[in-house]
Design a protein around this nucleic acid. Sequence first.
DNA 1: TCACGGATTGTGACCGGTAACAATCTGGAC
DNA 2: GTCCAGATTGTTACCGGTCACAATCCGTGA
Lengths: 357, 357
Amino acid sequence: MDSAGRAKVPTIRDVARAAGVSHQTVSRVINDHPNISAATRLRVEAAMEHLSFRPSRVARALATSRTRTIGIISTDNGRYGPPKTQRAIEQAARDAGYFLSTANLAEVGHEPMRDAVDYLQDHGIDGIVLIAPQAEMLDAFAELAPRVPFVTVDSAGRGGGHSIAIDQAEGARLATRHLVSLGHRGIRHIAGPLDWLDSQARIRGWRTVLAQAGLEAREPLVGDWSAESGHRVASAIAEDPDATAVFVSNDQMALGLLSGLAAERKRVPEDVSVVGFDDVPEAGYFAPPLTTVRPDFSELGTTCLSLLLGQLSGENSSAPRPIKPDLVIRESTAPRADPLAGDAFRATGPTRPSGSP
Amino acid sequence: MDSAGRAKVPTIRDVARAAGVSHQTVSRVINDHPNISAATRLRVEAAMEHLSFRPSRVARALATSRTRTIGIISTDNGRYGPPKTQRAIEQAARDAGYFLSTANLAEVGHEPMRDAVDYLQDHGIDGIVLIAPQAEMLDAFAELAPRVPFVTVDSAGRGGGHSIAIDQAEGARLATRHLVSLGHRGIRHIAGPLDWLDSQARIRGWRTVLAQAGLEAREPLVGDWSAESGHRVASAIAEDPDATAVFVSNDQMALGLLSGLAAERKRVPEDVSVVGFDDVPEAGYFAPPLTTVRPDFSELGTTCLSLLLGQLSGENSSAPRPIKPDLVIRESTAPRADPLAGDAFRATGPTRPSGSP
DNA sequence: TCACGGATTGTGACCGGTAACAATCTGGAC
DNA sequence: GTCCAGATTGTTACCGGTCACAATCCGTGA
């Protein structure tokens, strides 16, 4: 189309020459400065259009030391929550006109964290979002004390105004309260890895409700988020005669548990009720469809980003409220079968969870 | 720790002053130039260490017009394959010392694609990886004819040396051949959206094997990758008396099918055998555990990146071979029950897939 | 008619590196 | 002792924008 000989990318000075103005005037047009006459502006815009000029962000970054780019630090080891969170933040950043750079740690630790932070800072990112499901990541990050604004997504909420999270404990309370309201008394818990803040918070929530109901909280079984680990602990549940319900810390482990209980000839929900956490898209198609807790990741993403953007513009925002999840009731939970007679409780059916007390 | 008054980031000239050399010499040390005396190098390195100097990538990018950053274009709509591919490429890029920028299209189309490409080019990325599971993305990208090196991950393999993919058709052949070898004759297919190249290739592979075996290929049922869509078409399978096996284009739809068949009182694998595609981590814990095709995403990632790196260094690499997937045999497939007597075929059991013909 | 203040535009330096070329130093051959 | 090539180092310009400040233009009140 163009008859240009060389594929040289036009600069601000080329545009200036074409429009018969100084390069500074072109810069002003680009940046919407107020005091530019309409005629000049039009002329410059025409020239930019004609040369299909696009300002170099690199040059601008060098001059202003701001890049309109934010960095995300995450890990690869998350099953569902962390990547989902990351996606949501990417979406929110894009909507806000920010560019995004990702730095995924190969493993958790100080060295990899330092690398990631250096990496991002070298590239002149304006701010960092840290997705820190483990306390260790939070600690490693805190020690580095990066010189840029940041927000952490962590269930510990340690960062004050720098921190945002799903209200994990509330989700766990919702799930456990649901089981209690169905008449269950032996309510077990399968936790995720104990160094995960999410696991810890979910354990806390489960404990709280059991204590309120005057029920015993056995030591939780511990998995690693994988379906395999859920499958592995199924026998412990099956062999526990008092266990009629299980709150599982994520849906994958719940799936594994379902499969393990089936192998042990236990029926869900007739013999054992199961509640998961995450509401993965497939949860409705497990056998049976899984009752589970649904966090709102997209709200998490937007809140997280607006928090960071607030910091970038120098505001001093207060700590946002953790995001309340919902309970999605499907078919893996049912009223506790009367231990004496057959099916009592049939009349009530699954009750909807009540609001917060 | 430091007694510096201002938190000013040190530049190459600060280091030069501290080491008593010219800034160019510092630059040479940074870039490992050969002709630097050992003494000078040590002195400069000490100064860099002391000032905790880190070269500005932004400035370097401006000077060299190379950023050691590659951009990934993808979409949000992929269930498992695309994000997994993205992760794998990120990993490979990190290993190769490259920085990564992601641009996820909100939707497929020319405008969003143009935005994404502009976005990345504005930031001076050295190359682009396009994850294009749909022909439309490939077309949109091709029209833009970006000025930078790129590699596409597409199952159409249209890009020649620019293209790499999982051998989808081979995966489908593996799956279908497995079902044929179990004695099935009514082998149906549930496809993904027809505008996906992956779907198309998997349909082709399925058709090929059926044709070779002299079996009829009914028009595939079409889903949207979701478990829900697999569930929806289950009744069509259940009501088809000749259908004793189904090859499903991904594991999520297979899960939905499993749940739908159970609702229709069809047993898997006794009445119907099911094979999926992807081998999601949970596939082994479906009810029953799913026989499925496992693509090697990490090989895809590394191959993809080495292809791109080859281009960056000006090599003219030839088109790489598509990556062969494996078949993972679990419990959702079994020999076809003899329509006349009871269980024939028991003797053989599931056969391992033979190598390529 | 002239000084004055705001609107508009231009000039030169600078951001922090790299590239190209010049200058100086060194040691070995003659 | 002199000369020359290669090793080492320094000087200056440049990448493509922005910033600070100066210069010019314009209408208005004195």
